[in-house]
Structures are given as structure tokens and as C-alpha cells.
Nucleic acid binder design. Structure first.
Lengths: 308, 308
DNA sequence: TCATTATGGTAAGATAAACTTATGAATGCG
DNA sequence: CGCATTCATAAGTTTATCTTACCATAATGA
């Protein structure tokens, strides 16, 4: 188990391979071309394999070299990025937030300016993605998920349990006249959401009617079907039907009067929303600040008086 | 624009921060504790900021240190991985393949052993994901996509244009009796696929009937709806209905007689499947080999005699 | 309590890695 | 051809890195 080659030789190799010339690499590293040549020779010696074909005083990468170059380049770019951020005067906080895609499209971006206003400048990365989440590979600092996913070295905390509400535009409700009971909904165009494997346990219209003690027939499968809450909300806003939408997403439109609830009956979800934070990030100031703010915003949306 | 700190000092910092002790870092780097202390002091000096709180001969990371540690660790791990793979005797080829999720679940894994048998050992990473693809961030060597996505420094090549075929189990077909024309399909349970935003232009049952010059009523929306080809195929295999499935996925089951085509009419897709290869990877042996093999496998499935 | 053993910091000197300069050979270009 | 550019090699220098030695502090345990 020999020692690994020195980082300096790898650095020289990376620069030369990327630029395609020892001379250019030398300029980049502010050293002489001869030094580059020697470093690379040392590395080739150490790993026991040529990394450049020396053909005509010109060097082209060997297969082995070509194979590893992109990985090295990416890794060194990251190292240099870290170094630069350490050297920068006032270091900007960095925060990687992972949320379900539906939250990433509109709910979160709308509210982010508020957080930035409260907390000050920060480099925030929002990732819209579904379980399973690669906390370590993607260096995620905080994740909002539907349901609790406990892991070693991660702190998971339930925030609030949401519910789904039937919502549609006021115009659509007017057109179909006021409803007397839940059964009248069956006559209106329903917007279905197919949650996919991610959250198969989410309530459907069928589930909602059953919770209202109404046994729906096959006809409820009619109408539009989409595969995300965001899309369902958009269709509802466009007046195309009644969507069964989480409070989290529907609250704002209902508060503004752009959507109404034809029937004030909601169906609670099986799982709460949870915030998961890897322990390595739990103590960082930005992360703690964001965690608190995020939880409050979720609760505010879900428990909006407009949905009471 | 000051020079960046030397990699060696960053390496020492990373080891000390990760292990939580200068002494442990020294052991890891096979140098003396004093050397670690000096390297870190040099780094702190260079970036003009303390990275450890020295409290009681014990060091704990400062906020600045905690902020950058995970990024540094990940980057150095990658560098070390590269170094190790260079030192390893016979280097194993490494290949990162990106395909649509549906292809990643079953079609590709089934066929990979064949490629490995032909080409020899290799470290193959299969990523199931949808457009847009982050070729550079994820260092992808080759991508199969539905439709052509041209980019700078990428080579995109159409492979074959697939078609969708109605398929169901022989048992289901028998139960509903032989069909005389396409219109009879309307009486059978249809399995719908909702492609989502990724490939909105994919044909639906409605499109298929229209191509057959049949104007379907609202009733065709009945039945099951799933959001992936793979799921639709599974449901069809379970005898739950007729799915409209790409030749790529259906070919094998039809060849084996597990599925049949109640009507031999297919509907061609709007876009061909394409293989995209970043130029940096185009000349690598594994990549070229895989590209050729992959294209042939796709064509074989799509043009299977069983679907003729 | 008082060694014992750990931690990290500092100073001085040693060593080896890294670098420069100088030179040569091969190539391409005007 | 003459000139610029490329990389390789050799010899000598610089300096970053490392060791050794010694100190201070704190926790551990007999």
C-alpha cells in the first residue's frame, strides 16, 4: 500500500492535461515549464504509468490520463473554490436546501427573499428532488420531506401535518351554482393528481369522497390527471376544475381570493412534513436560522386562517 | 488577486478538522504533529482568518472552518480516489451512463452483463434521470434521451425512432375475444401513461385512436393512469389492461409471448432516441465501445421482428 | 496528590521537494 | 532557411516542509 502521490504533482498534471500544454500549465501555476515537466515525470514515475504520449515534442493524453482528467479537474475546482471563499474578506454563508420538486417551483422561491432580508446575504442553493436524498454526495444542509426519514447522524423533526382541500376558482363555483353537500362535487370537473411512487399514500379524490362517506362510482376517474401538486394547482387556477390540493400550496391563492373552497372539508395527510438536518450542519448559524424560519413559514401556510 | 494557499496546507487543515485533532491528522499524513501545527498556522496566516479556536490546548473549528470542511473533504476524497485508481495495477475503465428513469429500471440492467462480457471489466455507473442533464457536474460520459438536445462540445446522434404499440397479456385478449378492428379496443380496459412535463409530446391513447381515424369519446379516460412507461408495462404484464408501450420496452415480453399485440398498428414517436456524448469522453475506448453496443441494442429492441 | 500521558505551540536546524536557469533537440511557420 | 515554440534533461538553488527538542496545559488514574 504505497503512499499516494503528492498533491502538487497531481495539480501540475491536471493543469497540463486540461490546457493541453506544459507551457500553458506553467503559466497558470506561475512556475517554469521545466518545473511542470519534472512534476509530471515524478508523478508518472510514482504511479508507474505514462500519462502523456510524448510524440514530437507535443504531448497528448494517454487513455489513462483522459480517463481521470475530468474527475481531477472538478475536484481541484472545488478545492480552489473553497480556498477562494476562505480568502474572501467577509465570507458569505452557504446553504444547500433540498425540497420536493413541487416546493422548489414556486412556494419556496417566493418566500426566499423574506429569509434573505431577515438573515442577510447568503449563497443559497435550492434543489428540487425526491427521496431518496444523497445528503453526503450533494452536501445538503437541510431537507424538507413529506414523511419522516430517519438516518444515522441526521436530525429529523416533524413540523406540521398538512391536509388536502378541494379548491377551484370563484368563477367555476359560480357557474356550477352553490353546493349543498359534498356529493355535488361529483358533478364538477375534478383535477386528479397522480403522486407517483414518491408518495403513493397521498389522498386521492376517491379517498376524499370515502372520508365524506360517499362511495364514488367509476365516473370520478374522469377529468384531468397530472403528476404534481404544482401542476394541479395551476390547472385549478386556470379554472379547469377542482383540485385536491395541500394547504401548503393552496393557502396563498385562497387568501388572495383567487381560489375558493367550495366545501370546507379537508382530509389530513398521513405523514407530517419533516425537516432533516445532517449533524455536521446542525450547528451552523445559517442552517439554524433557516431551519427556524422555514418551519414557521410552513406552519403559517398550512394553518392559514383562510383554510380554517 | 492573491495566490491561493498551497494544497498541502489545505490538506493538513482538512485532516485536522475532520479528525478533530492535530495529532490524529499527523498520524494520517505520516508526519509529526508539529508539522501539522505549522501547516495550519501557515494557512491561517495566508487566508487571514483563524480556522480553529485554540481553547485549552484543544482545537474546535470556527464557523468559517465548519462551513468549508465538508466541501474540502469531498474534494480531497475525489482527488485521492483518482490517485489510487492511477496507482492500481490494471486500471479499470470507468463509465457514467445517464438514461431516462424508465430505461434505468429494467431495460438497461438486464443487458449490461452482455456488454461487460464483450468488453471486459469496467466500473459502470447508471443514472436514471430526466432532462435537463448536468453533464459536467455529474461527469456523464454518455446519455440516452428521447429527442435531440444539442449542446456545445457535445456530440448528439439520433439512433432510431421508436413507436408505441398496444400490448396486453394473451389471457386478457382471449377473455375479450378476438378483435375485428381498432374500435373494439375501446371496450377493453386501457392503461394510460401520463408522461409529465419531460416528454409531453408522447402519444396517448387519444392520439392513437385519432391516428386510426377513430374519434374517441370521453370514456377513454377511464382506467388506470401511471406516470412511467415502466409502470404501464408492469400493469400490462399483470393482465390489468392494454398499455400503449414503446417498442423498446415491449419487445422482449412480446418475443417471449408474455405479451401480445391485439392490433398490429403502431404509432411512431415524434422524436428519435439520441445518444449524446461530451467531446471530452468521445475518444475514450470504453465510451466508444459502449456507444456502439448501446445503439445496436436499442435498434434491436425497437426493430424486433416480433413487432413487425 | 503527583506522576503519566495526552494535547498543541514554538524554535532551530535538516532535508527533500520544488523551482530556476541553461541547454539541447524536435517541430512548425513565415 | 531563420526564428519561435515545444518539451526534456542536467545542474544548482531555494524554500516549503519536516523533524527534533522542548515547553505549557489539561485530563487520567494510581
Amino acid at each position: 500500500m504505497n503512499a499516494l502521490p503528492s498533491l502538487r504533482t497531481l495539480q501540475a498534471f491536471e493543469a497540463a492535461a486540461r490546457t493541453g500544454s506544459f507551457a500553458a500549465a506553467a503559466r497558470e501555476l506561475s512556475i517554469s515549464p521545466a518545473a511542470v515537466s519534472q512534476l509530471i515525470a515524478t508523478l508518472e514515475d510514482h504511479v508507474g504509468r505514462k500519462l502523456f504520449h510524448r510524440i514530437n515534442r507535443r504531448s497528448v493524453l494517454t487513455e489513462a490520463g483522459r480517463e481521470v482528467l475530468p474527475r481531477l479537474t472538478l475536484a481541484f475546482e472545488e478545492v480552489n473554490g473553497v480556498a477562494r471563499s476562505l480568502m474572501g474578506g467577509a465570507q458569505r454563508a452557504r446553504l444547500v436546501v433540498s425540497v420536493p420538486s413541487s416546493v422548489a417551483t414556486s412556494w419556496l422561491p417566493q418566500r426566499l427573499p423574506d429569509f434573505i432580508g431577515l438573515h442577510g446575504e447568503a449563497d443559497i442553493f435550492v434543489r428540487g428532488e425526491e427521496e431518496p436524498i444523497a445528503f453526503e454526495r450533494d452536501l445538503i444542509d437541510i431537507r424538507l420531506s413529506y414523511g419522516r426519514f430517519d438516518q444515522r447522524d441526521h436530525d429529523a423533526e416533524p413540523i406540521v401535518t398538512d391536509a388536502v382541500h378541494p379548491v377551484c376558482t370563484p368563477a367555476l363555483l359560480k357557474k356550477h351554482g352553490p353546493l349543498r353537500d359534498a356529493r355535488d362535487l361529483l358533478a364538477m370537473p375534478l383535477i386528479h393528481t397522480d403522486w407517483g411512487p414518491a408518495a403513493a399514500a397521498f389522498p386521492s379524490w376517491r379517498g376524499w369522497f370515502e372520508a365524506m362517506s360517499i362511495a364514488p362510482g367509476r365516473e370520478i376517474q374522469r377529468g384531468l390527471t397530472v403528476n404534481s401538486s404544482a401542476a394541479a394547482l395551476d390547472l385549478a387556477l386556470a379554472g379547469l376544475g377542482i383540485a385536491l390540493c395541500q394547504g401548503l400550496f393552496a393557502a396563498e391563492a385562497v387568501e388572495q381570493g383567487r381560489l375558493v373552497r367550495p366545501i370546507g372539508r379537508a382530509l389530513e395527510l398521513n405523514q407530517p412534513y419533516c425537516l432533516t438536518v445532517p449533524l455536521r450542519s446542525a450547528r451552523r448559524a445559517v442552517v439554524m436560522a433557516f431551519r427556524g424560519w422555514f418551519a414557521v413559514e410552513c406552519v403559517k401556510s398550512v394553518n392559514s386562517p383562510a383554510l380554517a
